[in-house]
Design a binder for these strands. Sequence first.
RNA 1: GCGCCAGUAGCUCAGCUGGAUAGAGCAGCGGUCUUCUAAACCGCAGGUCGUAGGUUCGAGUCCUGCCUGGCGCGCCA
Length: 572
Amino acid sequence: MNIRTLLDQRLGEVISAIAGEPCDALVNVSSKPQFGDYQANGCMAAAKRAKTNPRAFAEEVLKKIDLSDIADSLEIAGPGFINIILRQDFLEAQLATMATTDALGCELAGEAQTVVVDFSSPNLAKEMHVGHLRSTIIGDALGRVLEFLGHSVIRQNHVGDWGTQFGMLLNYMNETGGETTTLANLEEFYRASKQRFDEDEAFATTSREMVVKLQSGDADCKAAWQQFLDISLGHCQTAYDRLGVKLTKDDVRGESFYNDDLPIVVKDLDTAGLLKESDGARGVFLDEYRNKDDEPLFVIVQKSDGGYLYATTDLAAMRFRTGEINAQRILYVTDSRQGDHFAQVFLIAQRAGFVPEHVSLEHVPFGMMLGDDGKPFKTRAGGTVKLMDLLDEATTRAGDLVTSKNPGITDEARETIAAIVGIGALKYADLSQNRASDYVFAWDKMISLDGNTAPYMQYAYARIRSIFRKAASNADLGAIVLGEPQERALGNKLLQFAEAVDAVARSAMPNVLCSYLFELAGAYMSFYESCPVLKDDVAPETRASRLALCDLVARTIQTGLGLLGIETLEQM
RNA sequence: GCGCCAGUAGCUCAGCUGGAUAGAGCAGCGGUCUUCUAAACCGCAGGUCGUAGGUUCGAGUCCUGCCUGGCGCGCCA
C-alpha cells in the first residue's frame, strides 16, 4: 500500500469534482513535522484554474471529503495547503498488513512490463576497470528493483567482443601459443599485443587479416576468438560474483551477436527512406541536430569501406529487443557522455519503425568517477584502476576497521564481515549519489562508515538481530502499537518504503532508496535510544509490539539493501 | 560555433511533477556509555541556492541572457 498514492487518489477525485476538471492533489510527505504526516498542495493550482479563492476552495474540499478511515485531522494552512495527520490505528493496521508479505507493502502500479536493462557492457579486449563500476552496480540495482515490483527484467550485457582489436589479440595469442596462463593478466596481454601491433608492420597486417577471417566465419579463428572470450568473461564473472551482481553468462549478448543483422539494419533504413550517402559513407541526416558547420547532423551507420559502427549495432540491438524480446521499456545504463549518441539512435530507431511508439527508450546516464583532485579517478601512477584492485582495497580497508573495532574476532569472521562491509560501502557510496553528477571517489569518506553509508544501515540491522538473539525463545511478536513519538515516526517511515521503491522504478534513481533507508535507519536509532525493548520494566505487550517493530525494520533494511545489491550481517 | 550536463554550508552531497522558515553527512564546538552492540544518540554553529532579469499567490526547481567547470559534435566505442 502506497499511502501517498492513496491520498493522492482520494483527494484528487474531490478536488477534480469541485474544480470541474481533472486536477492533481499533489500529495507529499510533509516538509516539516508540524505540518502533519502528509500535505496536499493541489488546492492552490486547482483554485486558480477555477478562478476562486484557494483557501475557500480548500474549505470546500474538506467539506466534501471523507477521510475519516485514514486521517485524524485535516487542516488548512497557509495559502491553501491541506495538512493531513493520519490515524494511529490506520498506521498500525497498515503496518500489520505490511508485515504479512515479503513485498513489504510494495505492489505493481500498473501492468507488469518486460524491461530490458542494458548495463555493465565491458570491452572484453581488456580487464574490467573502475569505468565499468557505476554501470554495473546501478544497472544491477535497477534490475532488482523492477523485478521486485513484478516486472519481467531481461538483463543484457552488451559486451564489446567484435572490434578490430580482436584481430590483434588473436594474432598475438597464436604467436604466444594460446596458453591460457598468459591470459591470466588480460591487461598485460593487451598491452603486449598492442606493442607488437604498433612496432611490427607484418604483425599489424596479419592482425588485420585475422579480423577479416574472423568476421567471414573462419572456423579456426572463431574457435580461438571463443577461447579468448571465455577467459575474458571468466574475469568479468569473478568481478560480478565478488560484487554480488546478478549477471551471468546467459545475460551476455555482445556486439558480435548482431553481426548478421547489420546489413539488414542498413537495408531497412534505406527502405524507410532515411538512408543517405555522404563522402562514400552511408547514414541518416537528422535535422534536430547540427554539426560544426550548422548543417543537419549525419549519423553514419556504414563506413565508406563497408564497415559498421556502434550506432548500427545499437540499432540492431533495439530491433532485437522490441522484435524478439518484446520489451516495453529499455534502459541503457551508460555514462552521460553517450547522451547525444543515444538521443540520436533513439530518434532514428523510432523513425525507422524499429521501435514502436509505446516502447520507452531511456538513457540512464551517470557521471564520471573522479579522484579527490577532481580529475578522473586514476592510480597514483596515472594508470587505469582495475576493478579487482578496487575490490581488494575495499575489503582490506574494511578488514582493518573490523580489527580495530573488534580485535578479538576470528580471522574467518573478520574476512566475512570485511567482504560484506567493504563491498557494501563501495557500492553504496556510488548508489547514494544522484547518478547524474560526477562523483568524487574518496576512500576515507566511504570507508569511514559514518553518516549515510551502507555500514550505518548494516549496523542498525545487526543491532536488531542482536536484540532477537538476546530475547531468544522469548521473542514473540505482538500487535504494533505506536505509543511513543519515536515509535510513531518509525512506523510512519516504514510505511513509506513502497513510495521509495516506486520512485526508483519510475525515475531509475537508486539514490532515492538510499535516502529512504538512511532516514529509516536514523528513525530506528532514535527509537532504539528512547524505547527499550527487553528491559525489565517494559510491559509484555509493549515488548511484543516493539519486537514486531524491530522485526519489520530489520526486514525492510535487509530487503532495501538487497534491492541495492548489498548484503546484511547478523553481527558486526 | 552548436548541443548536453553541472554550479546549493568550509568539504561531499540531497532537495520527487514549482509549495510553507532550503535539508543531510563529514569536519568544528558541547553533552550522553556499570550499553537491548557508543560503527550509536542528543544539541550548537554554519546559506545572497553561480549571476542578472522574467513568469506568479509562491522559484533552488520553469523561461531568457551572462559567468565558470565538465563532456560531446560524420567514417573509434
